[in-house]
Each structure stands twice: as C-alpha cells, then as structure tokens.
Design a protein around this nucleic acid. Structure first.
Lengths: 201, 201
DNA sequence: TACTTTTGTTAACGGTGTTAACAAAAGTAT
DNA sequence: ATACTTTTGTTAACACCGTTAACAAAAGTA
C-alpha cells in the first residue's frame, strides 16, 4: 500500500513548505524578523503544527545553517576543481568564499552568527574612530619605514583589522571561555605574515 | 543655588545605576539575556523610568559599545607606547587586541555584533566538516609543495579561514549590500600575503 | 461500525520592548 | 502657607515573541 509513502511524502512537503515560508521571510526582512508565528501565518496553519516538524525555532535555523555550509562547500569544491596548483586553488577559493558570503548574505550571517546590531550606526561611533586612528597611524609608520612606502595604508589597515577580527571571532564561535595559549600561535603566524607582507621587497 | 546641580548629579547617578545593573546582568548571563524589565527589577524602579534616561534598549547597548571601543583604544595606545619600531608595535597591538577580546568578551561581542547562535553545536554540523576538509586538503597540498613541508597545516588552515571570515564580517558590519569590487583588493592583498607566507623560504 | 492514531486547533503561560494615562512628589511663585 | 507647574514615578496596557497543554477533527485500521 502506497498510503504510508504518501504520508511520508506529504510530511516532507509540509516540512519543505515551512522552510520555504521561513526563507521568504528571512530574505525579505532578515533573519532577525523570522518568527514561528509569521511562518504559521504564511503557510496558513496554526502555530503548533510547526512543532510537529521542528523541535523549536533553533532547529529551523540550524537547517539553514547546514544548507549554507553545504552550498559553501559545493562552491569551494567547484572552484577548486578548476585549478591544479594548490596556491592557485587557495586564491580562487578565497575569492569564491568572498562571493559566496555576499551573494548569500543571509546564509553567511546565520552560519557565523553575525548579529549585526547597530550595523549602520557603528561607523558614527567616535570611540571607534579613535581606535581606528591608532592602528592606522601605526600601519602608516610601518609602511613608511618599509621597502614600499607607496603602499596603500588604508588597504593594509583593513587587512590588519580583518585578520585580527577574523581570528578572534572564529575562536569565539568555536569555543567558550578563553582559548588556550597555543591558539595564540595562529595569531602570531597571521600577524607575522602580515608584517612581512609590508616589509617585503 | 545648588539644587539644579544636585538634580543633574542625581540624574547622572541614576543613569549610571541603570548601566551598572545592565552590566551585571550582561556579565552574569550574557547580553542576550539583558532586558529592560530585569534592569528595572534590579534598580527597584518601574520599567518606564528607564526610558527617561535612555531612548530605548539599543541606546543602552550603544553605550556599552562605545565604552568597549574606548577601552580597546586605550589598551592599544598603552601597548603601542611601549615600543618604537612600528612593526613591533603592530605585533604587540595584535596580541593586545586578542587579549582584550577574550578578557572583555561581552564588550567584544557587543562591539562586533557577534550573535553566537548555536555556538557550541556548530562544530557538530556535518556540512561544516565537509567544507573544512576541502580547505584543509588544499592547504596541505600547498604546504607539501612549498619550501616548508613541515609546516603545521592545521594552524595554516585556521589562519586562512580567519582571514577570510575577518574580511567578510568586517565588510558586512560596515556596509549593507555587496561591497564595490575595489574592496576585493583587500582580500587579494591578504590572501597573497598568506600564500607567500606558506611558500616563503 | 467502533476504535486508534495522526493531525490540527484554540487558548494559554511567561517572556519581550515600548507607551499612554495617570498619580505623586518636588520645586516655584505668590 | 497656599496654589500652581514641572518633574518623576507608577499602573496598565499594546503588540509582539517561543512554547505547550488540552482538546477537537480527520484519517487510517480492525
């Protein structure tokens, strides 16, 4: 009897429609605006039915997170396969990573827990400018002392900050508490590379 | 008459007590758990009084964000002043940045909008491992072809991912929409430096 | 047809940020 | 001291949120 199969299929469809409705909400107003109630409203069912298919809201978000990592992995693999030299692969994958992040912004934010609070207002914070200027002036000085005094210091500042923030936030996502001292080797490694890239002939 | 001054002073104290209560809540249960109601409860006043001192909840968070950037800037300045060679300053500041982030985790999360959703469960996602393995294998291959085949590939992977994530997330915080192509130069710059650091003699 | 299981509903609990309407206290002027 | 005004605080509500218990309806099974 195909009745059990049909039920499974229907359940799958229902589940998919929940995700579909959720995704529509996310891409139209960001994942902060996603609510169980809005999903229920969109699929024209009452709220508790959603809990028949997902344990809770987090489970829905987790679904998209997985989807996101899968898409990213597929993208990286695809790009990697177009090259043979590892260094070229790494470079191409880096660009692919970047493109993925901005082409699938919602996915990326979910995957890496980017809350984006006062996103647009953060640039107006005076204290931020202060911290920025300290770093920029140092970068500037380092460049002037280097073999390439014509280097774009603003670009280098962005690189510097990005490396730092990347290291920190990846670390924070992966582990609670203060990371063991060995993790600082990653920092040391990255920052050495950065400084060398400034002084390099 | 000092009565106006007293009022201003009292208002200031009240404001400070709100921030103090809020901060206690943040450090004890994370800033996700912070609510106007809990603050009101802690200072033993009714809810709306808080709105006499802060426009809304975001304004309170913004206050801490500013504080955070101020503290970071002070820390960086202090460390910078202990060195004279710019390259040394950059390195020391990098370590100070790292320490600040983990010594003042709550500040850092606020400052850079780190939502931390399935923070502890993210490592269990199978799709993440898939994406990870693609990157790691490439790094491994690049290292084997390099002048330093004994290099720790896991460390280099972390560096690689951190650079990428740092670039992306800093970019996302600062601007909505897809960044102009010129911003990709930062990526190019950072990734070149990374690849060089692998191949470097 | 009678029974069981699945699927869906309504209604509520406890929580959130925010605000309107109003009471109480404090300060000011007569 | 009394009358008036401003400030400060309160209660109560609005509109949301995630989640769940209690129950009704439909579907499948004997």
């Amino acid at each position: 009897m195909g009745i059990a199969e049909r039920k499974i299929r229907q359940k799958e469809e229902f589940r998919a429609s929940i995700l579909e409705a959720a995704w529509q909400q996310v891409i139209s107003d960001g994942w902060q605006s996603l609510s169980i109630r809005k999903i229920a409203d969109a699929i024209e069912y009452s709220i508790p039915v959603i809990y028949n298919h997902f344990e809770n809201k987090e489970a829905i978000l987790l679904e998209f997170t997985k989807e996101g990592f899968q898409k990213l992995a597929d993208t990286l693999q695809l790009v990697k396969d177009q090259y043979t030299v590892p260094a070229e692969q790494l470079e191409a994958m880096a660009h692919a990573y970047w493109d993925f992040a901005f082409d699938h912004k919602e996915y990326y934010q979910l995957m890496f827990g980017l809350g984006i609070p006062a996103c647009d207002r953060v640039n107006e914070i005076e204290e931020l400018k202060y911290a920025t200027s300290i770093m920029i002036s140092t970068i500037k000085a380092a460049i002037e002392e280097s073999n390439h005094p014509e280097t774009d210091y603003f670009l280098k500042y962005h690189t510097y900050l990005s490396i730092l923030h990347g290291l920190v936030s990846i670390q924070m996502i992966q582990k609670e508490g203060k990371p063991d001292a060995s993790k600082k080797m990653i920092l040391q490694d990255a920052i050495s590379g950065f400084i060398i890239s400034i002084n390099r002939k």
